[in-house]
Design a protein around this nucleic acid. Structure first.
Length: 728
RNA sequence: GCUCGAGUGGCGGAAUUGGUAUACGCGCAACACUUAAAAUGUUGUGACCGCAAGGUCAUGUGAGUUCGAUUCUCACCUCGAGCACCA
C-alpha cells in the first residue's frame, strides 16, 4: 500500500466533487432542507489566516453530517467586500477598489477551496457586485417608502487637519489615527434608519430563537428597555423605573456638569412637600428626561448624593400606586441607526435632491445607481464624499419633474450588504427580485421545529450585537411587508472563539504573526489542518495556535490510512461491538453540541483500539470512515473508494446509527472506597446486584486491611460503578 | 463601577442529574529498529515520601453541605470579554 500523501489525493477529490456538483443545493427536493450559514468574510489584503476557517470547518462538519442524514443542504459563501480597509488602500495607492477586491477575493477563494469545505460555489455572492447592490439599494428605498429612512442632524468625528470625517475606529484616544490631531464633533445631515421602532419586537422575539443565553443578554442590554413612569414635579418631568418609591423622594436631580443646588424648589405630588432641585453629573442628559427624583432610602447612588450634600432621607414611607401621579412608559438605550457615510467604497444611496420636488427616490428601473470610477478617493474638504467631486455623476435630472437635480453623494455603511445576504443565497441569480418569496419559503421555513429562518448560523462574538441586531431588524421590516416568510432570520445561533498567535496575541499583519493556511496545507495537508482546528480546544473558546501540536492529528490520519492494509475478519467481539456503538453515539452527539474536540478524541480512541488488533472487521472500518468523513473528507473519500463497498461518494452515504442495546458492556469495573477514598476495584458482570457488590467488595484482599477491627456503619452502592464503606 | 465567563499536569485540554480527577493529543525519558539520524514502534510520565510494598497531598484560595465535591453553597483572589453613571 502506498504512503499517505495528501498532496496527491486532496486536489484530486476537490476537483471531482466540484465536477459532480456534490455540494450543490437543490431548490426543490423530496428531501427535507437544511440551511447552514457562516458569516461571509471581508476579503482583506492580508489573505486568509488560520483563524478564518475555524467556523467554516465547524459548520462544514454539521453540513456534511446533515447530507449524510438525508437533508438537502444549503451551505453557501460570498464576500462582504465594501468597507474601509479597501478604500484606505485605494487612497494610499490610487488602485481601483474593484481591482483590489477582485485580487483579494481570488486569493480567499483559492485558499478556502484548498480546505475541502463543502460550500455551494454556484451561489457565491459579492456585496460590491452591481447585480447585488442593486437590491441593497432597492431595499433602502423600501425603508424610505415606509418612512423608516429619514434625514437628521448627527455629529460625526471630524479631523480639522485632514479635513475628513472619521469612523470611530479611526479615532484613537480622541485623536485622528493618521495625523494625531484632536478630533472634533461636527454636525451633518445624515440618513437614519428607525430601528427604535422595532425595539420591543427585537427584545421580545429573542424568546423564540435558539441563541446562547449570553448572546440574548447582550442583545437585550443593547436595546436596554426599561419600564417606568414619567412623573411631573411642577414643571419638571422626571423618568423613574421605581414610581412606587415616590413618597421617599426628597429631592430632584437634573443633569449637569457638577453637583450644585439650583436655588429652586418643586412640590412632590405624592407628599405635597417642597423639595429642592439639584444638578449633578451622575444624571445623564440623554436618557429618560434628563431628570430624576432622588429617593435616598431606596437607591444607593441617591443615598450617597444625599449624604454628601446633607439632603433629607426618609426611611419609612409607604409604597405608592404610580397611576396616581404619572404615566407608564418604556425607555430604550437603543438609538436610531446612522446609515450614511461620507466615503467612496459603499453602496450609493439611491436618491436625488431636486430643488422643486425635494428628496426623490431613484426609480426601480434605474437601479442600480452604479459607483462611478474615479481617480481620487480623497473625501472633499467640506466633509462630503469623494463622489461629490464627480460633477458628471452628481448632476442629473429629477425623475419626477425632469428638472435639474443632484445625486445623493453619501454611501451606505458596510452593515447594509450583510443585513440581507442570507436571502440572496436562496436565489442568487434572480434579476427580478432580491429573492423570490417562493425560494425564501423553501429555504427559510422551518421543517420540524417552531421558529423559522436559517437553520444554523455561526459567527464571531464580535458580531453578536450590531450585525445580529441590524439583520434581525431588516428581517422584521421585510416580514411586515410580506417579502420574507419568517419573523426571525436565524433559528439557531452559535459562536466560535478566535484563534490567536502562538503567544496568545491576536493575529495581525502589523504584528507579523499571521499564520497562513497555505503553508500548513502544503506541509501537513488540509485534512490534518481541519482535524487539528477541531481538536485544539473547545470551539467557542479563544485559543492559541500551536505549530508543534499539528503532528498529533497528522499521526492520527496516518494510522487511519494504515488500517486499510490490516488483515480482515468477519467477527467483532462483544467488547469491540460496544466500543463501536459507543463511538457512533458520542461522535453524533458531540457534533450536534459543537464539541468537536471530544468527537475527535473519541475517534482517536477508536482508531487506537483497531490499531492494536491483528485483524479488524470491514464493518468497523466502514463505520470509522463514515464518522470521520465530515472532519477529514479527502482521506475518507480516498479510502472509501478503494474499499469497493459502494460506487457513491462517502459524503452521500448514510450516517451510521447506533444500537442502544449494544452500548452497555458485559463487564464493568466497580470501584471500592473506604470512607470516600479509593482503596481497590474489581471486575463484575454489568447486571450484578447491590447486595452482591457489597459482599464481593468486602472479600477483595486489599480492602480487608482497611476493614479489619472496624465496624461498617453504612455501605453506599451505585450499581455498576462504585461501593463506599463508611467505618466507625 | 456594573454584567457575564473562566481558573485542572511541563503545555492544549477531558470528566457535572455529586461517584475511579488528569481521557485524547503535544512534549519529555528509556528501550527497539538503524553504521548514524529521522521516521516508526514499545514502555513510562501530577507532586512528595519510600529500597519496595505502599502511603500522603493535589482541580486559584479559604470555609461549608455530603458517605463522597473539579461539579452544589458562601466569601475572597486572579485573568478574560462586554457595557460605560440607564434612575
Amino acid at each position: 500500500m502506498s504512503a499517505y500523501d495528501p498532496k496527491k489525493i486532496e486536489p484530486k477529490w476537490q476537483k471531482e466533487w466540484e465536477q459532480a456538483g456534490l455540494y450543490h443545493a437543490e431548490d426543490s427536493s423530496s428531501k427535507p432542507k437544511y440551511y447552514t450559514l457562516i458569516e461571509f468574510p471581508y476579503p482583506s489584503g492580508d489573505g486568509l489566516h488560520v483563524g478564518h476557517p475555524r467556523p467554516y470547518i465547524g459548520l462544514d462538519i454539521v453540513s456534511r453530517k446533515r447530507r449524510m442524514e438525508g437533508f438537502n443542504v444549503l451551505y453557501p459563501i460570498g464576500w462582504d467586500a465594501f468597507g474601509l480597509p479597501t478604500e484606505n488602500y485605494a487612497l494610499k495607492t490610487g488602485k481601483d477598489p474593484r481591482i483590489v477586491t477582485k485580487e483579494n477575493t481570488d486569493t480567499f477563494r483559492r485558499q478556502i477551496q484548498s480546505l475541502g469545505i463543502s460550500f455551494d460555489w454556484s451561489r457565491e455572492i459579492n456585496t460590491t457586485d452591481p447585480e447585488y447592490y442593486k437590491w441593497t439599494q432597492w431595499l433602502f428605498l423600501k425603508f424610505l417608502e415606509r418612512g423608516l429612512a429619514y434625514k437628521a442632524k448627527m455629529p460625526i468625528n471630524w479631523c480639522p487637519k485632514d479635513k475628513i470625517g472619521l469612523a470611530n475606529e479611526e479615532v484613537v484616544d480622541g485623536k485622528c489615527e493618521r495625523c494625531g490631531t484632536e478630533v472634533e464633533k461636527r454636525e451633518r445631515k445624515q440618513w437614519m434608519l428607525a430601528i427604535t421602532k422595532y425595539a420591543d419586537r427585537l427584545a421580545d422575539d429573542l424568546d423564540t430563537v435558539d441563541y446562547p443565553e449570553r448572546v440574548k443578554i447582550q442583545q437585550r442590554n443593547w436595546i436596554g428597555r426599561s419600564e417606568g413612569a414619567l412623573i411631573k414635579f411642577d414643571d419638571i418631568e422626571i423618568f423613574t423605573t421605581r414610581p412606587d418609591t415616590i413618597r421617599g423622594a426628597t429631592f430632584i436631580v437634573m443633569s449637569g456638569k457638577e453637583d450644585k443646588f439650583t436655588g429652586r424648589y418643586v412640590i412632590n405630588p405624592a407628599t405635597r412637600e417642597k423639595i429642592p432641585v439639584w444638578e449633578a453629573e451622575y444624571v445623564m442628559a440623554d436618557y429618560g428626561t434628563g431628570a430624576i427624583m432622588g429617593v435616598p432610602a431606596d437607591d444607593e447612588r441617591d443615598r450617597i448624593f444625599a449624604e454628601k450634600h446633607h439632603l433629607p432621607i426618609v426611611e419609612n414611607y409607604t409604597k405608592a400606586e404610580f397611576e396616581d401621579y404619572g404615566k407608564k412608559v418604556a425607555k430604550y438605550k437603543l438609538r436610531d441607526w446612522v446609515f450614511s457615510r461620507q466615503r467612496y467604497w459603499g453602496e450609493p444611496i439611491p436618491v436625488v435632491h431636486c430643488g422643486k420636488c425635494g428628496i426623490v427616490p431613484v426609480p426601480e428601473s434605474e437601479l442600480p445607481v452604479k459607483l462611478p470610477e474615479i481617480k481620487n478617493y480623497q473625501p472633499t474638504e467640506t466633509g462630503e464624499s469623494p463622489l461629490a467631486n464627480i460633477s458628471g455623476w452628481v448632476n442629473t435630472i429629477c425623475p419626477k419633474c425632469g428638472g435639474k437635480a443632484k445625486r445623493e453623494t453619501d454611501v451606505m455603511p458596510n452593515w447594509a450588504g450583510s443585513s440581507w445576504y442570507f436571502y440572496r443565497y436562496c436565489d442568487p441569480h434572480n434579476d427580478k427580485q432580491f429573492a423570490s418569496l417562493e425560494k425564501l419559503k423553501y429555504w427559510m421555513t422551518p421543517v420540524r421545529q417552531s421558529g423559522g429562518g436559517v437553520d444554523w448560523y455561526n459567527g464571531g462574538m464580535e458580531h453578536t450585537v450590531l450585525h445580529l441586531l441590524y439583520s434581525r431588524f431588516w428581517n422584521k421590516f421585510l416580514f411586515d411587508l410580506g417579502l420574507v416568510p419568517t419573523s426571525e432570520p436565524y433559528k439557531k445561533r452559535t459562536s466560535h472563539g478566535l484563534i490567536l498567535a502562538e503567544g496568545g496575541e491576536k493575529m495581525s499583519k502589523s504584528k507579523g504573526n499571521v499564520i497562513n493556511p497555505d503553508s500548513i496545507v502544503e506541509r501537513f495537508g488540509a485534512d490534518t489542518l481541519r482535524v487539528y482546528e477541531m481538536f485544539m480546544g473547545p470551539f467557542e473558546q479563544a485559543i492559541a495556535w500551536s505549530e508543534s501540536s499539528l503532528v498529533g492529528p497528522r499521526r492520527f490520519l496516518e494510522k487511519v490510512w494504515k488500517l486499510a492494509g490490516k488483515g480482515q475478519t468477519l467477527n467483532i467481539d462483544s467488547q469491540g461491538l460496544t466500543l463501536m456503538h459507543q463511538t457512533i453515539k458520542k461522535v453524533s452527539e458531540d457534533i450536534e453540541a459543537m464539541r468537536f474536540n471530544t468527537a475527535v478524541s473519541t475517534l482517536m480512541i477508536f482508531v487506537n483500539e483497531l490499531d492494536k488488533r491483528e485483524e479488524i472487521s470491514q464493518k468497523e472500518f466502514e463505520i470509522l470512515l463514515l464518522l470521520l468523513a465530515p472532519f477529514a473528507p479527502h482521506i475518507t473519500e480516498e479510502l472509501w473508494s478503494t474499499l469497493g463497498v459502494s460506487q457513491n461518494s462517502i459524503h452521500t452515504e448514510k450516517w451510521p446509527k447506533y444500537d442502544e442495546s449494544k452500548l452497555i458492556a458485559d463487564e464493568v469495573t466497580i470501584v471500592i472506597q473506604v470512607n470516600g477514598k479509593v482503596r481497590g476495584k474489581f471486575v463484575a458482570s454489568a447486571n450484578i446486584t447491590k447486595e452482591k457488590i457489597i459482599k464481593a467488595a468486602q472479600e477483595v484482599p486489599e480492602i480487608q486491611k482497611w476493614l479489619v477491627d472496624k465496624n461498617i456503619k453504612k455501605s453506599i452502592c451505585v450499581p455498576g460503578k462504585l461501593v463506599n464503606f463508611v467505618t466507625s
